[in-house]
Amino acid sequence: MDVLLWIIAAVALAVAEIFTTTLFLLMFSAGALAAAAVAGLGASVPVQGGVFVVVSALTLVALRPVLLRHLHRSGPVGMGTATMQGATAVVVEQVDTEHGMVRLDGELWQARSLEGFGTYPPGDRVTILETAGGTVVVWHDDPPGITDLLS
C-alpha cells in the first residue's frame, strides 16, 4: 500500500512540474520514486520518509543545477542542415561540380564542389560551405579565405 501511495505522489509531482517548468517538483518526484522502491523492499515508514528527504535534497543540490545550466546554455541551438555549415567531411566518392558523395558524422551526403573549384578524390577532407536541396557544396578543408565565404 505504501508503494502505491509513493508512486501516486511521484506522478502527481511530475505532472505538477509540467505546469511550473522549474525542475523543482521533479526532484521531489525522484525522491518519492526512491521511497517507493524502499517501500517495495519492505522498509518501515520512517525509513521511507528518510529516503524521500535525502534523495529529494541530493537531487535538488546536485542534479537540478546541472540540468538548469544545460537548459539555459547561451547561444542559439542550431537545427537542420544549417548546422552543417563549416563542418569537415571526408570524400567517399569523387566530388566535382556535378556530383559526388561525402561522409559527415557517419552519414553519407550527396555533394558537389564549389563552381570552378575542382575535383576532390576519395579520402580528401573538405569543408561544407552550404546545403542546397539535400546536396552539400564543399571546398578543400580549411582553404585560405574560407571564413570570408562562410560569412
Rank of each mutant, 00 (worst) to 15 (best):
63 L>Q: 04
53 V>I: 11
117 F>V: 00
11 V>P: 09
77 V>F: 04
76 P>T: 13
86 G>E: 08
22 T>S: 13
58 L>V: 15
93 E>K: 10
123 G>R: 08
53 V>W: 08
121 P>N: 01
48 Q>S: 03
123 G>Q: 06
76 P>S: 01
113 S>L: 05
33 L>G: 09
28 F>E: 05
81 T>E: 13
104 L>C: 02
12 A>P: 00
138 V>E: 11
135 T>C: 07
87 A>L: 09
32 A>P: 09
33 L>S: 10
117 F>Y: 14
55 V>N: 02
44 S>Q: 09
35 A>K: 03
23 L>E: 01
144 P>T: 03
98 E>C: 02
138 V>Q: 07
86 G>S: 06
120 Y>M: 12
61 V>G: 01
86 G>M: 07
123 G>P: 11
53 V>T: 06
21 T>C: 11
15 V>E: 06
29 S>C: 04
147 T>W: 01
136 V>M: 10
76 P>E: 15
148 D>K: 12
106 G>C: 08
131 T>C: 07
68 L>R: 14
107 E>A: 13
43 A>Q: 05
52 F>Y: 10
127 T>R: 12
59 T>K: 03
47 V>F: 06
149 L>S: 06
107 E>Q: 12
6 W>M: 09
80 G>L: 04
133 G>S: 09
72 H>R: 15
93 E>A: 12
32 A>L: 03
147 T>R: 12
126 V>K: 04
71 L>T: 01
150 L>P: 10
2 D>V: 00
110 Q>G: 04
9 A>W: 08
25 L>N: 08
18 I>M: 14
98 E>V: 12
35 A>R: 03
111 A>K: 00
50 G>Y: 09
23 L>M: 11
5 L>N: 05
70 H>T: 07
44 S>A: 15
96 D>K: 00
56 S>Y: 10
124 D>F: 13
92 V>M: 09
65 P>N: 02
64 R>H: 02
54 V>A: 15
117 F>P: 00
3 V>E: 06
81 T>V: 13
6 W>Y: 07
127 T>W: 07
85 Q>Y: 07
72 H>M: 08
18 I>Y: 01
65 P>D: 06
21 T>S: 11
79 M>I: 14
84 M>N: 03
139 W>K: 09
107 E>G: 00
99 H>C: 07
12 A>N: 07
3 V>Q: 09
130 E>Y: 12
115 E>A: 13
147 T>E: 15
38 V>N: 05
95 V>W: 05
